[in-house]
Design a protein around this nucleic acid. Structure first.
Lengths: 224, 224
DNA sequence: GTCTATACGATGATAGAC
DNA sequence: GTCTATCATCGTATAGAC
């Protein structure tokens, strides 16, 4: 009995210590020795419970990403149920897409997700991209379909681009909030979740609602 | 005379080899030994010409970022000159902000910038953020002022947020284009520069032009 | 001034005893 | 399951050749 408690305890202690140190100092700058020291466990236990540092990182954000995506789908479900048989309103869809991540920001969960996103950007063909795809597979499908119903005038290609931009704005806010503080001369903070949320919804709503592109063929010269 | 040619040659060979390998395998996965082997130079020459791997990375994107930001400011200057004494039109400002980076994508310069952006995301308080700030200091001021003139109804805070979102959409496109391909089911490619540009301008234009938020003070309860 | 050969401490990973 | 011991490889520093 006590063995099991000990075992899972060690695993959790490693996860918590690693998540904390990764968020503080970055991935490369955090050694397994620092993690195991912080967790009060042996160095080799990391390679026993996880296979490698790489897999440890995966485990960290799998733990954080799953409940976030679950919450997203719940909110989307509810929005579609309330609006049925009409399509869910755009703003509710955006709430479902953005809120769970924005709320996680600042918490331990947010730190874990931030590490993942950074990894996606830092290592082009890396495993982090593949991992994000796996985690986002179901959510991507569902949100794409919901947005297509809400914005039937947009082609699938244009809709995909706009979703991509919204996700980019979200990711950038989660991960590079410091740049916002700098741009605004210290006036704005990405930690102001309430204000961030309102600005982001307003921006994304307008961007998604923009009129479709005039020409699919690259005809120019059309001015006003 | 020939000495100088030799010297700069070694330095350039290191920069080119490093940029190529970093873009292919990421920062952490690329060793200095791999770089010097690729460049055909001695290991220690990296520490002679640059002080460290960190400084080498800085040099890589300093080489790429400076001409890009210079081009941005030139385009902004021209837009303001053409429109004077009226404020430069929003679309021209966006062109100046987005085009130089979008055009660089896919080229060697784009690869260098991608590495930098990834670094910003990957290491929270890291030096890459500081470096980006330095590089963006002048451009940030100039574009902020131009946008403020073009969108006088927005408060500085709201404008800062929206600039932040535009930059996020741009950064995400540059660096995580693979996710766009995935989202769209392979229909869209971030390498389609022309289409990317048009979609992005349309999205950003609408987002920036969105009506200002109703309340500046966090007064709640106001619904419709 | 440029470049090279070589060595040092720290890291991620692994094998085998307990 | 956990630990100690050990390994190859990493970034960096230095001493000296051209």
């Amino acid at each position: 009995m006590t063995q099991i408690i000990q075992a899972t305890d060690t695993k959790q202690r490693i996860l918590n210590a690693a998540e904390k140190l990764f968020a503080q100092h970055g991935l490369a700058a955090t050694s397994l020795r620092a993690i195991t020291a912080e967790a009060g466990v042996n160095l080799a236990s990391v390679n026993y419970h996880f296979r490698s540092k790489e897999e440890l990182i995966r485990a960290i954000y799998r733990r954080r990403l799953e409940p976030i995506n679950q919450r997203r789908l719940e909110m989307l479900d509810q929005a579609e149920r309330e609006a049925a048989p009409k399509p869910a309103p755009l703003e509710k869809i955006l709430d479902a897409l953005l809120d769970p991540l924005l709320e996680a920001k600042g918490s331990d969960a947010g730190a874990g997700v931030q590490v993942l996103l950074g990894r996606v950007y830092a290592e082009p063909g890396g495993i982090a991209v593949q991992m994000l795809k796996e985690q986002m597979a179901e959510a991507g499908q569902r949100f794409g379909a919901a947005l297509h119903r809400a914005l039937p005038k947009l082609s699938r290609a244009e809709l995909a681009w706009r979703m991509h931009f919204v996700i980019g704005a979200l990711a950038h806010t989660l991960v590079a909030g410091k740049l916002l503080e700098y741009i605004s001369g210290g006036e704005c903070s990405a930690d102001d979740t309430e204000y961030a949320h309102r600005n982001m919804i307003a921006f994304a709503l307008a961007g998604l609602n923009a009129p479709p592109l005039k020409t699919t063929a690259p005809a120019r010269k059309v001015k006003s």
